[in-house]
Design a protein around this nucleic acid. Structure first.
Ligand SMILES: [Zn+2]
Ligand SMILES: [Zn+2]
Ligand SMILES: [Zn+2]
Ligand SMILES: [Zn+2]
Ligand SMILES: [Zn+2]
Ligand SMILES: [Zn+2]
Length: 620
DNA sequence: GAGTTTGAAACT
DNA sequence: CAGTTTCAAACTC
């Protein structure tokens, strides 16, 4: 159901892969001139937007079909549906760390004012051979024109729209989902980090999924069962991951941590044949080869261990974004603009936030005190630092809920390279497709009103967040049973999971505890200082709020995107299109298959540009 | 900034 | 679909 058209797209039938010659024109990076000549000729003629099928007609499409009708649309619709409930807790700031991220939110609390500003900050590509017409190019992959990039021989711009379009089509032919967000929200009920999954998953072999080479890691999400990585350490509760993530963000400290995670250089002589690395068992031949390298790496990982509040927010990286190539870069670029948040934050909201944080602080204090009393007589408890904050101790910090699935078999400490079972999880965790589908279906509705910031009731949110008593303390998110339950399906065994609790994850040995709490420079060993708790609570709450804001912005962008699609669809009455612009509610709705080919809408869009700005600008 | 490593994308 | 090559980013020095 989901809007039928969503996937459909592609259709543009360009020929099959093989017949390249004929129409390869646009893409062939190599002999540019040559190809261009030929292609150019052919293309230019028809070039004009035409019905968008010229290509199709020209060549017999290999596979016809079109799932629903033949909406020529390329892929529309989509945009990952972010239906997450905003509870979460990871720090948004993390997003800022992601270079790929095209935008991030920065928040500062000054007295009573909170200022949010989106920093578009587009990344510059440096393509040299692809003409920025292949997915290798981040700009192209993101559906935007190159702008101020360092690329060479760039065709990803308005001046080459023609060729570019072809490239888009060719790309879509190879993979109809090429421009769709790579990361999607699976279940609105869970925390963002858990609910987001990389559609295709990664296939990392040597990075342990702890470096940005890994798309999952880069997007700040855990690897999922979609991934086919080897020796993955990017899962919830992974201490190795914590090490890395902690080292990366928090101010200075632990800077070295990251460096530690580098596999030693492997001598070039290594046989890097594909099959090589996999087996473990056997022998660690002394060749000092990959195995050796990995081994070293593993040891390093093993050495490090600690727990920490970690939690970063998944960066809605280039991937799951609002941009949509089918709509022409022009629009996408606009969608990335900061103005998307205009109007969402207003004084009232700020006041609410201010009050809210204040309350949180106070409550935390009270709870803290109560907790202490209780604990005093209660259990002595060994040294768990994390339990600290909450008297209830229920949540204990590390969330586990791990809906995301991919579990590492071993406790995360990397144990040499014990091969990956690979299948373990395949067991039908029950995750029936149907169920999955249903989950995906859900829209964010109800969480907040798009157009009226006021609609968003901070208190309400808060209550959600507090749901389990004082869960707000936990920085790591999810945890609450709520989430766990939310995802009916997976209840995995999780290594760390278990509500059984934390002990497993945390290293009992106490021995190594490197990073531990970088958060508290002053307090040192004393784990649960009141300040700490308050800070944690406040940040958590603030984060929740920011998440909401972020979501609102995204929804808004999506709404505009939809509106543009309509506007550019000649078959629909303009009035309807305009109406949609105001219908804030249906953000994620399907839009009739407007022909997405930029060719036509590029122009259209341009005009609408103004409209767009007007609508949004006001607040600014 | 040059050189290396890495894994996605493209290609065969 | 698997194996190989190409590519640009991530990372290292
Ligand atoms: Zn580029
Ligand atoms: Zn670019
Ligand atoms: Zn470019
Ligand atoms: Zn990975
Ligand atoms: Zn992954
Ligand atoms: Zn992984």
């Amino acid at each position: 159901m989901e809007r039928g058209g969503e996937l459909g797209g592609e259709g543009t039938g360009r020929t099959s892969v093989t017949s390249v010659q004929a129409q390869k024109p646009p893409l062939p990076p190599k002999q540019a001139s040559k190809a261009k000549a030929q292609a150019g000729a052919a293309e230019e003629v028809d070039g004009v937007k035409g019905s968008g099928d010229e290509k199709g007609s020209k060549v017999p499409k290999k596979r016809e079909r079109e799932r629903d009708g033949e909406s020529p649309a390329v892929q529309r619709g989509k945009v990952a549906k972010t239906g997450l409930t905003v509870k979460t807790s990871s720090l948004l700031m993390a997003a800022a760390n992601s270079p790929r991220l095209s935008s991030h939110l920065s928040a500062s609390v000054d007295g009573a004012s909170v200022s949010l500003q989106a920093t578009p900050k587009k990344r510059k590509c440096n393509c040299k051979q692809s003409r920025c017409l292949k997915l290798y190019c981040e700009c192209f992959a993101s559906g935007i024109y190159c702008n101020d990039c360092n690329c060479q021989d760039c065709y990803n711009n308005k001046d080459h729209e023609q060729v570019r379009q072809e490239a888009v089509e060719a790309t879509l032919e190879r993979n109809p989902d090429a421009f769709r967000p790579k990361i999607q929200s699976m279940s609105p009920g869970m925390s963002i980090q858990d609910s987001l999954k990389h559609n295709k998953g990664c296939n990392c072999k040597r990075s342990f999924c702890l470096k940005r080479y890994c798309e999952c890691f880069q997007a700040n999400i855990y690897c999922s069962d979609n991934c086919r990585c080897t020796d993955c350490k990017n899962f919830e509760g992974s201490s190795s991951r914590l090490q890395v993530t902690q080292a990366a963000s928090p101010s200075s400290r632990l800077q070295s941590s990251l460096e530690t995670f580098s596999p030693r250089k492997r001598s070039k002589k290594e046989k890097k044949s594909t099959g090589a690395g996999k087996h473990s068992g056997g022998a660690v031949n002394g060749s000092g080869s990959d195995l050796a390298a990995i081994s070293t790496f593993s040891q390093q990982l093993q050495a490090m261990d600690s727990k920490g509040s970690g939690g970063e927010a998944p960066a809605s990286g280039q991937v799951g974004q609002v941009v949509h190539p089918g709509l022409s870069p022009m629009v996408n670029q606009m969608l990335l603009a900061p103005c998307m948040l205009a109007g969402i934050i207003n004084e009232e909201v700020v006041k609410h936030l201010s009050n809210l944080l204040h309350m949180v602080s106070r409550e935390t204090e009270e709870n803290y005190l109560n907790g202490h009393e209780a604990r005093a007589r209660g259990k002595g408890e060994g040294g768990n630092k994390e339990a600290a904050g909450n008297g209830t101790g229920a949540d204990a910090g590390d969330g586990r809920g791990m809906p995301n699935s991919k579990q590492s078999e071993t406790s995360d400490t990397v144990t040499e390279e014990e091969d990956r079972n690979g299948e373990s999880r395949s067991n039908g965790t029950g995750e029936s497709h149907l169920e999955k589908a249903l989950l995906c279906e859900e829209e964010p509705q109800g969480l907040f009103e798009l157009d009226s910031p006021k609609g968003y009731n901070l208190n309400k949110q808060r209550s959600l967040g507090l749901k389990e008593g004082m869960s707000m303390m936990d920085t790591s998110d999810a945890s609450h049973g709520t989430n766990a339950n939310a995802s009916p399906t997976k209840s995995h065994p999780s290594s760390s999971s278990g509500k059984t609790q934390g002990s497993s994850v945390r290293r009992q040995g106490g021995a190594a505890q490197p990073a531990a709490d970088f958060a508290t420079p002053s307090c040192g060993t004393k784990s649960g200082s009141l300040y700490e708790e308050q800070e944690k609570a406040i940040l958590t709450e603030l984060n929740n709020c920011l998440q909401v804001v972020s979501q609102m912005g995204r929804s808004k962008a999506e709404m505009y995107r939809s509106a543009f699609a309509l506007l550019s669809n000649p078959t629909l009455p303009l009035s309807q299109a305009l109406a949609s612009t105001q219908a804030a509610n249906n953000v994620g709705n399907n839009i009739p298959p407007a022909d997405a080919q930029a060719g036509s809408d590029a122009a259209t869009v341009e005009q609408n540009n103004n409209l767009h700005e007007q609508e949004v600008e006001p607040a600014a």
